[in-house]
Write a protein that binds this DNA or RNA. Sequence first.
DNA 1: ACCGTATTACTCGCGCGCGAGTATTCGCAA
DNA 2: TTGCGAATACTCGCGCGCGAGTAATACGGT
Lengths: 190, 190
Amino acid sequence: MLALAVLSALVERPMHPYEMATILRERGKDDDMEIKWGSLYTVVRNLAKHALIEPAEVGRDGRRPERTVYRITTTGHDELVDWVRELIAMPGPEHPRFRAGLSVLSVLHPGNATALLRERLARLDDGVIAARAALEQYGREVPRLFLAESEYDLAIRVAEAAWIRSLLAEIDLGTYPGLDVWRAFHEENP
Amino acid sequence: MLALAVLSALVERPMHPYEMATILRERGKDDDMEIKWGSLYTVVRNLAKHALIEPAEVGRDGRRPERTVYRITTTGHDELVDWVRELIAMPGPEHPRFRAGLSVLSVLHPGNATALLRERLARLDDGVIAARAALEQYGREVPRLFLAESEYDLAIRVAEAAWIRSLLAEIDLGTYPGLDVWRAFHEENP
DNA sequence: ACCGTATTACTCGCGCGCGAGTATTCGCAA
DNA sequence: TTGCGAATACTCGCGCGCGAGTAATACGGT
């Protein structure tokens, strides 16, 4: 994944690793994908080994340690495009933590579960407000195309909130089937 | 994560590791969370070391190698509940692969991008149909409570599909801002 | 009776991810 | 002008995740 970020950074211009890190952090790429900066130099070396990028020049700035500036190769560019194609076209199996939580929801007392769901809902709503504000802000500085990930993220959060709301509604109205069994189980087992 | 699954399995009754694997696979827990079965015995040993589970009996079935049956401890149960609480109440930062893809969407020609988005949309819709069918099926065998994760998953997929549809609509109608710049860039750079 | 394949039930080592550390330089305040 | 924190630019080793392997038994076919 970090490799994807590196390649995408090198598309606009050649860079040395530390500069990539700076740029990518500025653009908030570490919100879009899980990035461990400790792996940066390893990843860069690997990309170079597979000839997806190549050293362009080895500069020295004053007395600083020498920096190797990398450029993306044609193979690298092709690989990048293929990679993105797959990420876009193929819905892979995702594993959000919330889903894992839901899959063991039954270990909680229903009363507790609903309270926690309401808590998540509140945080989610806050997040949505914040995200909308941030989007409106960035929307004036950056072309819309570069905000697609954030717009997507926002849409998903809204959907999650809506789903939780509908679940809570069913439970509150008592129309959720098996609710009594669920509650009974937790009140019998101390 | 696998630890979560193990604990949740041991809540209903004591078990030996291989049995956990069987049960968890049957229940499709490996759809809910990323599970590497190679780590099962390591994880179980760790849980035991931290006293979240403990050996209950060491049985031997015929000439088979001896199997250690584990039971969950009180500490283990508390830890499990705390863990689930956090998973439910705290929306953590998620990193779906699609989001990473979107964040570098600009490396594709817009025509290509829309084609790939349409492809994803198709696959997504198929998935939704299948998931709905599966849910209706399981709905007769299993209490609704144990399908929450799948219902959630379905809702999110539907939302993703809707978002993609609205994005495609904007692009098709030409109302997506910066579309011409995007196309121009890719047609100038060979 | 014989063989092959599936299932049960685990073990283990190697690979590499990445947190924590390092060394140098720059900026700025007193 | 000296000192000190932030920024620059990397390196490295240890930890452990997990794929690939193992070995024994059960089962089904002929």
